[in-house]
Design a protein around this nucleic acid. Sequence first.
DNA 1: CCATTTTATCCGGCAGGCGGATAGATTATG
DNA 2: CATAATCTATCCGCCTGCCGGATAAAATGG
Lengths: 262, 262
Amino acid sequence: MEKGVPIRSISRSIAALKAINEKGSLSMMEISRASRVPYPTACRIVQTLLYEGLIEQEPSRKRYRATALVQTLSHGFQHRDKLVSCARPHIMDLTREVGWPISIAIRVGRRMMLRDSTHSSTALTFENYYPGFTLPILDSASGKLSLAFAADEEREMLLGWMSEMPEVDLDYLRSAQAGLDVEKIRRDGYAVQGRNHYNRTPGKTSSIAVPIFNDGEFEAAMTMVFFVNAMKLDAALDRYLPTLKRYAAAISSDLSGDGGRA
Amino acid sequence: MEKGVPIRSISRSIAALKAINEKGSLSMMEISRASRVPYPTACRIVQTLLYEGLIEQEPSRKRYRATALVQTLSHGFQHRDKLVSCARPHIMDLTREVGWPISIAIRVGRRMMLRDSTHSSTALTFENYYPGFTLPILDSASGKLSLAFAADEEREMLLGWMSEMPEVDLDYLRSAQAGLDVEKIRRDGYAVQGRNHYNRTPGKTSSIAVPIFNDGEFEAAMTMVFFVNAMKLDAALDRYLPTLKRYAAAISSDLSGDGGRA
DNA sequence: CCATTTTATCCGGCAGGCGGATAGATTATG
DNA sequence: CATAATCTATCCGCCTGCCGGATAAAATGG
């Protein structure tokens, strides 16, 4: 094996497990497509994950879903998660104050990934989203914010990198880039996404994201999600933006201070 | 490939990732030992996990730890976790009442696995433990409880299965079995473990576990952990057992009822 | 009812994955 | 401080574990 070249079947099984987690459950054909492997290979990978107990078949259906055992693959990270330790109390308070769910997301590779959320602590949500859930960059408030606050070179590199993603339509990418007003986002200190599409209830929610800084550097996006039929985007901005900025500033302050040190 | 036989390298990488999560960070040699693969094989697996971004090397140290990205492997399970949905509000209330951390654990294979815990919500703990952390069955309060409430045949099968675990000393297993008073645990409705050894602060804590039922069937163990130097086991039982039983009964009631349905 | 898609399995082929051996670096011990 | 033990890193010949196109049966949708 070449130095640094991954073991193919391991990478493929990771892709399969991520896809199953992302969608909640998938059929074998869907797993094959999502992880870009031939059907017989997907069958073997699924058999291995079943054998390890990480996934199970839904009763009476040819669909596969994660089991509780997947948490043995991820629990080791959490006890040194400074971002979440600082943010968690604040976003719990914020959800109590505004009612809507709040999430914290960072950019990982070419997507945004949730680091924490309060979806499970409010009734004002259609679905619950947990740390690990991912979102596209150009179609989410947090992604646009992250892109806007990136260094110019990093943004160009990232847009170039995204154009290489096999599932991305280049025409779409060009129009999404054209619609991204970096200057305006940086000046206003927020980004929005009308009718979120890339979640489990497409078109039913919209969102507003504000930045969290760590020693002046952009660290994460804090996003409030709300129902499209509850209020218009402009009304949401008028009503909530000041509050969101205030809470994000408090989190930034905690992150930059010595609060987390022993 | 035989039907049902796993892909070897996938199973090995899962073992390695679990071990890294379990200990927080490991050296290459430790990974090799913990996942029972030859050193060069451990190197290749680690390289693959690094390439996938699931682990990283600790700065200036030849030790590897999980990254936030591991959460993409596990988040899909949580949104249909009925046990935790029912238990979470109760154990949060319980930790507020007694101060000590509470955890919910189930048996998975030959070990106990945390499904939820309030360690991160109290100062009365040395370390934080998250869903996915595992414990041995015969050396934890929750494990003894689970074993005691198992059907006789299941218990025999499980004890036999544990004697096949490569890392278990048979002399130790025999003496642990001899010390397990199944009748007493079932009669008293709790199990204890003095000086917990299999956690990150061996010997500094003890624990009491009580059962959670679902329609009369044993479903999970609810455990309170406390400092050895704060009180003796007997004193802890006198002071806390009634409260623990009351909360566990409430969780059992919620689980058995229609509380979780839309 | 028929066309299409999905599920499931087979089996020949080969290169991906393997691990013992080796050398250098680091750590522990006397 | 010297030496032994342990750990890290890599090599390379070997071979079987993993592969995927082909095929048939089952399931689904119009």
